[in-house]
């Protein structure tokens, strides 16, 4: 693996569309469930161990070279909210564009051709990691970290939260993030049928509600 390639892929400035998504933080802030850094940490920990684990396992499986079409179907089955499915595919398509420019590879071309409207983002992420010469642990770490870094950045914008505190939340979650990535990778090694299906029903419900808001700052 190339540690530097991992930094490029995991960089929050990697131009793959993530900045427009709050990972469920916008509806949680509106509902008063996130008001400060402590709330943010609880929100992120919950998201990490549910949808984060599922996304990380999908990414690890794609990085291992499992059939991306099967993984995409597995992602669909694990994403009951139509709004979140649409967001995942849109983000997958955006990530695909950036990844193909950064690490041109036949496997990325084939995935883009098979899913012109976008495959689920974790599947693209794992395939991109593979193209970058990275392994399943790397892909799982990227996916798990994105699960918490997205809401943290969004909370800074939505609440005017102290950015140092938000970053400290991410640092405190690092052991959990490592743990989730390790569990996700182990599951991915056991095959597509062994992938976890952890979910957070409240995130699914609020994502549907959020998608119907006439005025919002984030796309999801």
């Amino acid at each position: 693996m190339s540690r530097s390639a991992l930094l490029v892929l995991a960089d929050g400035r990697f131009p793959a569309g993530g900045h427009a998504h709050s990972g469920g933080a916008e509806p949680a802030v509106r509902a008063g469930r996130i008001k400060d850094a402590a709330d943010l940490e609880r929100f992120c920990r919950g998201r990490l161990h549910t949808t984060g684990l599922t996304a990380a396992a999908l990414a690890a499986a794609a990085a291992l070279g499992h059939d991306p079409a099967a993984l995409d179907a597995a992602a669909d089955a694990r994403t009951p909210s139509p709004a979140l499915r649409a967001a995942a595919r849109r983000l997958g398509r955006q990530l695909m564009r950036a990844a193909r420019t950064a690490w041109p590879a036949a496997e990325l071309d084939a995935l883009a051709e098979a899913f012109p409207r976008g495959a689920h983002q974790p599947v693209v992420l794992g395939t991109a990691a593979r193209a970058a010469g990275l392994g399943p642990e790397d892909a799982a770490h990227c996916a798990a970290y994105e699960t918490v870094s997205g809401p943290a950045t969004a909370a800074v914008r939505l609440l005017g939260l102290d950015p140092f505190q938000a970053t400290a939340v991410l640092a405190r979650l690092a052991p959990d993030t490592d743990d989730v990535a390790a569990r996700a990778t182990a599951a991915a090694r056991r095959g597509v049928d062994a992938l976890p299906a952890a979910s957070a029903p409240l995130l699914d419900i609020t994502a549907e509600q959020h998608a119907a808001w006439p005025v919002r700052l984030f796309a999801s």
């Binding site: 131009p15 427009a20 564009r97 700052l217 796309a219």
Partner: peptide
Amino acid sequence: AVETGACPHTAIRDDISANLE
């Protein structure tokens, strides 16, 4: 319409992927 996550300049300059789509 493209949604910009409270950062309109990012969507036209630093991460143009949504606009290109």
